[in-house]
Design a protein around this nucleic acid. Structure first.
Length: 143
DNA sequence: ATTGTGACGCGTT
DNA sequence: TAACGCGCCACAA
């Protein structure tokens, strides 16, 4: 038990929230953090996903938790120490029909307007000019 | 025990 | 517009 009870609960909350993301859609670390009531720790959400066990017998593992559907607020797949990691995520998303484009820096990006999933949705506020991020998607969370 | 490192995001410079 | 600073906190060294 290397992990405190509190941390364990947080990890579980993250995994559960991520499992709500519909296939073929993506959301952000910050949004997940907000959904589980800890809007100030999007970074910890990343830690939780990073620690996701590969062991298929674990309650939460990289096969039953769609970790690939979580990207950063910039709409890009977060770069990691191991380049293969982000590339791998891009492949996983494409496999479920998500269109992934490549930036000049080799950065993989996804269009939120087309694939974003934001229950209760928040808005990207926009200051009044050219807003077109509407989406009219109403997904409800239940348990 | 301490220190450094991030799969983040937002406010300030 | 691009950098930088900071909060947060599990993990590896």
């Amino acid at each position: 038990m290397a992990r405190s009870d509190e941390a364990e609960a947080f990890f579980a909350a993250v995994y559960t929230a991520v499992q709500q993301i519909p296939a073929g859609r993506v959301t952000t670390y910050g949004h997940i953090a907000m959904l589980i009531g800890t809007p100030q720790r999007p970074r910890q959400v990343g830690v939780a996903l990073k620690q996701l066990p590969a062991d298929a017998s674990a309650p939460f593992n990289n096969t039953n938790v769609p970790w690939q559907r979580v990207i950063n607020a910039k709409g890009a797949i977060s770069p990691r120490s191991q380049p293969s990691g982000s590339r791998n995520q891009a492949t996983a998303l494409q496999a479920e029909g998500v269109e992934v484009t490549r930036g000049a820096l080799g950065e993989f990006t996804v269009d939120f307007a087309a694939y974003g999933w934001f229950p209760n949705d928040l808005p990207s506020d926009v200051s009044g000019d050219e807003g077109e991020d509407d989406e009219g998607e109403n997904d409800e969370i239940r348990q």
